[in-house]
Nucleic acid binder design. Structure first.
Lengths: 128, 128
DNA sequence: CAGCATCCACATAGATACTG
DNA sequence: CAGTATCTATGTGGATGCTG
């Protein structure tokens, strides 16, 4: 008994998967969503444990997708700032329900220490 | 200026990514959401081009995650039916906003022929 | 029919070292 | 500071053939 509301075209899913399947992509989008703008090393710290190569690669893809904006300042030392585009902000909103769903599942609280309470959409990183 | 509503713990993101990053996982969840229950080969057709190995692997993972249910009937020829669990249905709902977001992006209509209009949450597969 | 076994190809991501 | 260059490890998925 399906209704119109269920009739969503999943064609775009292919493209979406290309983006979200990248392990760090959503984390980056989120980090930028929290901080408004971040520099390369700022992202490195925020994400905890990402390699510069992976970060660089992912940033380029997100740029190509039009989800983040890169602003480079001709200074010494060089400064580059990343921020979400309007589309990026929309994506971040779109994944919230997914997050909430994930948060209702059992294996959630484990590992998410109270230390991190109040840290907006953080991510713990014990794995180092 | 962040408000409480933005303070979502992204810890679970790690787990979520493990699920959704699997290229076929969301497609399977969706297919089962559309059809209620499907058999192995039914899924093969619906998904268009997935290999039995990959389907088998993914189904097992989704089972392990408690997102789909597997029912085997001792008949000849053997019959096995897959369907979404409650959690699976919730996941499907949770990704809808993501889908809608994807659907608003430019490169959407391209490839999504009118032939498929009315096919609930389908996916085209030219690539064969 | 519903898979499993095997082998293979490719994409992603980490470590490390180095550069404009 | 903000990356790039390599090299490697792992995972994810496809092809093919076989089985209960």
């Amino acid at each position: 008994m399906k209704r119109e509301s269920d009739h969503i075209c999943f064609c775009p899913l292919e493209g979406v998967i290309d983006i979200i399947s990248k392990k760090w992509a959503l984390l980056i989008v989120n980090a930028l969503g929290n901080r408004e703008r971040l520099r390369f090393n700022g992202l490195m710290e925020d994400l905890g444990g990402i390699s510069p190569k992976t970060l660089s690669d992912t940033l380029k893809e997100l740029q190509a997708e039009g989800l983040i904006k890169r602003e480079s300042f001709a200074e010494i030392p060089p400064r580059v700032e990343y921020s979400l585009t309007r589309d990026g902000v929309e994506l971040r909103k779109a994944i919230m329900p997914l997050l909430k769903w994930a948060a209702t599942r059992e294996h959630v609280n484990k590992g998410c220490a109270s230390t991190y309470r109040g840290v907006p959409a953080h991510r713990i990183k014990e794995k180092r």
